[in-house]
Design a protein around this nucleic acid. Structure first.
Lengths: 263, 263
DNA sequence: TCAAGCAACTCCTCTAGTCGAGTAGGTGAC
DNA sequence: GTCACCTACTCGACTAGAGGAGTTGCTTGA
C-alpha cells in the first residue's frame, strides 16, 4: 500500500509540457516541499503507471529525469528513493598550514581527523612521466621534461571521495621518499621542504563538471553527482613551482572553504 | 553520407555490459580521443540503429547517457553534437581588493573587464525578508531578524552566468543606496564601508551540485552542466559579519582561483 | 532570380509489450 | 529454530512500432 497523497494533480496530456516532465515536476515538487523526505521511497513504476494511466517508459523517463538531477537514486529490486544528502565535510583553508606538517600529518589526514572520520589511502601509483601540458605550464617547465607522478585515492570511512595525482619535478623527487608509496611523516610537502624548498604559498584553481565514467566508478558516484576538479600549485620562497596536484573530488563529499583578505 | 569510421567495434550482446552502454562507450571514446571534435555531429539515431542493429530506444538511451555526462547536446531537427566547451573565465582571488572599490568598480564588473567581456546585470530585486537559517547563522543574528535581500542576475556578453542574492543586516542597509537598484560606485561593499564598516576579510564556501529546474532556466544551462554554489561572508574590522552573498554560478563558465599561504 | 512549397531528415514523445535480475518476505521441510 | 525455496514486487534492458515537430535543402513555378 502506498501514500499517493503526494501526487495531487492529474496530468494534462494536451499541455505542451511533456507528460513525463509533468510527472517529474510533481515528484520533484513532493521532494522539494518535504512531502517526500530524504531516504523515503517514491511510488513504484507500477503505481505511477496506474495513477497516471501512462506507459512504463513514460514513468521511467520521469524518474530518469529526477535521477539525473541528483534528487533520486534507484535501487534495483527495491525501489527509487529520495537521495540522502551526505553530510558535507568542510575542507578548511588552513589545511596546508606548516603546523600540520610539523605534527607529522599529511593534509588529508589532518583535515579528516578534524571532522572525525577515518581516513585511508589506496591505489597508490608512482611513476616518472612526461606531464600533460596543463601541468607542465603550471610547473613552468618544458613539456618534455620528466616529472614524478604520484597518484592515489582517498577514502573516508571506507568511501572513496577523492582522486589525486601530484606532479613533482624529477630533480626534487628523485632519491627521496616521494618515490615510495609511504612518503613519510608530513607527506610529500614535508619531503619537498626537506629538499630545501620552503613552501610559501599555494594556488588552487577550482572547476566543476560531470565525472567521466572512470571517475564515477573509482569514486562510486551515483548519477547526478558532479565533481570538483582542483588543481593546486605549490610555490617555494623563490617563487618556484615545486608541485602541481590534480585532484578530482566527489562533489557531494566536499565543501571548500577559502578565506580572502579584503586588502 | 556519414563517417561511421568512428565506430570501429561491434557490440557484444552477451556481454554483461548493457548494449546501450557499449554504444555510449564507443561514442564517448570517439569524443575523448578527438575522432569526433567539438561541435561535430554524431551519427544520427537512424545511422546508429542501422550500424548496430538495435532498436531505437537503445540508441536513444546511449545518447541520453552522453548528454547527461555533458559530452553531447541534442538539437531538435538538426542532430546531436559534441558539446562545445566554452572558454572558462578565471575568477581571480583579488576580485574583492579595495583598490577595485576605490576605482568605483563592483567586483563582477572589475573581474569581467579583466577578461574582456561585456558585463551586464538584470533581474534586480530588493526586499526586506527574514533570512533562511543558513544565512542568519552566518550573519550571527536571530533567525527572525529582518535583513535586506538584494538579488540579481549577472550576464557576460549577453549570456547569463550567475545568480546572486546578498543579505545585509537591515540596520546597515536601511537608508542607503543598497536599497536602490543602482547601488552606486564600488557596489554594495563600498556602501557598507561608507557606513563605517571597514571590510577586513571574506570567507567563501564553495560546493557543487546539479541545478534546480529554476536555476537551469535562469542560467540557460544545458543538461549535464553542474553549478557552483558559493556562499561568501564579509567581515569588518571588528569581526562582525556584515553581508552574506549566496551565489549560483554556471559550472561551465567559471574557474575559481584562490591563493593560500603556507603559513 | 526568387520565393513558396515540399520532401527528407532530424530528434521528441509516447505506447505496449517481453525478458531478466535483484530484494524481501513468507512457508515449509528438516 | 533455521535454512532453503518460492513468490511477489521492484527496477533494468530491450524491442518495435506510432505520430509529432523543428531544420534543411531541393524543386518548382512565377
Amino acid at each position: 500500500m502506498v501514500n499517493e497523497g503526494i501526487l495531487i494533480h492529474q496530468i494534462d496530456p494536451s499541455s505542451d509540457r511533456a507528460v513525463f516532465r509533468q510527472i517529474a515536476d510533481q515528484l520533484r515538487q513532493a521532494i522539494e516541499s518535504g512531502r517526500l523526505r530524504e531516504g523515503e521511497k517514491l511510488p513504484s513504476e507500477a503505481e505511477l503507471i496506474e495513477h497516471y494511466g501512462v506507459a512504463r517508459m513514460t514513468v521511467r523517463q520521469a524518474i530518469q529525469e529526477l535521477r539525473n538531477e541528483g534528487l533520486a537514486v534507484a535501487e534495483h529490486g527495491r525501489g527509487v528513493f529520495v537521495r540522502r544528502r551526505p553530510p558535507v565535510k568542510r575542507l578548511a583553508s588552513d589545511r596546508f598550514a606548516r603546523r600540520h606538517r610539523k605534527d607529522g600529518k599529511a593534509a588529508f589526514l589532518a583535515e579528516s581527523e578534524a571532522v572525525g572520520v577515518k581516513p585511508q589511502v589506496d591505489h597508490i601509483a608512482i611513476s616518472e612521466v612526461q606531464p600533460p601540458q596543463e601541468i607542465s605550464e603550471r610547473l613552468r617547465i618544458a613539456s618534455d621534461t620528466a616529472v614524478v607522478a604520484r597518484s592515489r585515492r582517498y577514502l573516508r570511512d571506507g568511501h572513496p571521495v577523492e582522486l589525486a595525482t601530484s606532479y613533482i619535478p624529477a630533480e626534487i623527487a628523485r632519491g627521496t621518499q616521494i618515490m615510495e608509496p609511504n612518503s613519510g611523516p608530513g607527506g610529500i610537502y614535508a619531503r619537498i621542504e626537506d629538499q630545501g624548498h620552503t613552501l610559501e604559498r599555494f594556488v588552487e584553481d577550482v572547476s566543476t563538471r560531470m565525472p567521466t565514467r572512470d571517475e564515477a566508478k573509482l569514486l562510486n558516484l551515483s548519477a547526478g553527482t558532479p565533481v570538483f576538479r582542483l588543481i593546486r600549485t605549490a610555490y617555494d620562497l623563490e617563487g618556484m613551482a615545486v608541485e602541481v596536484c590534480d585532484t578530482i573530488m566527489s562533489g557531494d563529499a566536499f565543501l571548500l572553504s577559502y578565506e580572502l583578505p579584503a586588502h
